[in-house]
Nucleic acid binder design. Structure first.
Lengths: 175, 175
DNA sequence: CCCTGATAGATAGAATGCTAAGCATTCTAG
DNA sequence: CTAGAATGCTTAGCATTCTATCTATCAGGG
């Protein structure tokens, strides 16, 4: 099959939202997020905070920039989220000793303990979401979503460097 | 393979954002949306407006509620979006003659003409996103995303009717 | 040393989308 | 008929996240 005749779908195909990757990822993300937050709010953790906790449960002491990249949020968003989390006693900001620009983020004991409570919840939501779906198809889903976001990020960066000459910060995925 | 031993992944699996459907759909949605909006903004159309236009290009005269359901936004969001679109001359609000509660939404000639300009853009972004991915896998992606959002919506509605006795408006998907 | 540019974080302001609650209109059970 | 429920749209207020910009700090070449 040639790329021209078979792989390229007619433009009209994308008129239907049900065929649109943008639409489908948006509604899936929102239903997923809402469903999870309904559970985590029992422990006073919002969806936004959850995303940071999950990363910090794996590795503490990250700087805010590293944290932003791993969570997939912009830095001002991270600042706002951390302000809230600091206020509600989930994280501590610890200034770096080597580099006074940097701030390392550590969990409080309470936030560490929340892991055992909250992790089962995301597993639960994943089970609900995956009901009736072939596990192999879900593996395909993960792989394809990741590849797509990489494709789109690559194109975005190519566009930016071509049109503004801007170099993006190295190693920043930040989709 | 039994469901207990093979299909259920260990909780620890979900600690890594890269395995999280929530994370993956979020970053894919955002990169997709940003990439498309970069193109549509040339014609002064934001990502939010684009979503409504796409639905109205298929069928005009929908009520705001019908429109909300098809676009996948809540009604107050639709009101805000339509206010903006009305102001910038993309849509007209036409009160229903049979039922004075209802308002039908029609495109302006200018908005209709935008279709031929904007539709190729979404095709373009889809091509970028799909680069290097087996078309069959993309079909799997669409099917699985839709099924997941249905699963999660079903569970959400079951929860709501069990805990608040609330009946959701019939036929509303609204993820 | 001391400028210059890069890096880390914070701030300001805007856009987006949500929930909750409020009206007006229509339907429906008695 | 008519009181109460349901429906359709709107408003108010809030949370989230973004872009653009600012300040402070560091690193390297002259």
């Amino acid at each position: 099959m040639t790329a021209k005749t078979k792989d390229v779908l007619p433009i009209q195909f994308y008129a239907d939202p049900m065929n649109s990757i943008g639409y489908l990822t948006r509604i899936t993300f929102r239903t997923f997020s809402r469903n999870l937050e309904r559970r985590t709010l029992v422990h006073g953790v919002t969806a936004g905070q959850w995303r940071f906790l999950r990363v910090l449960w794996i590795e503490e002491g990250l700087t805010q920039r590293e944290l932003s990249n791993r969570v997939g949020m912009r830095e001002p968003t991270t600042v706002t989220a951390l302000n809230g989390m600091e206020k509600s006693g989930l994280v501590r900001r610890v200034p770096s000793k080597n580099d006074r620009r940097k701030v390392h983020i550590y969990l409080t004991p309470r936030a560490r303990k929340l892991k055992d409570r909250l992790m089962p919840m995301v597993a639960e939501v994943n089970v609900v979401a995956a009901k009736g779906i072939d596990p192999n198809d879900i593996a395909v889903l993960r792989r394809v979503l990741l590849k797509m976001s990489e494709n789109l990020t690559t194109e975005e960066q190519a566009y930016l460097s071509a049109h503004t000459g801007a170099k993006l910060p190295v190693g920043s995925f930040v989709p």
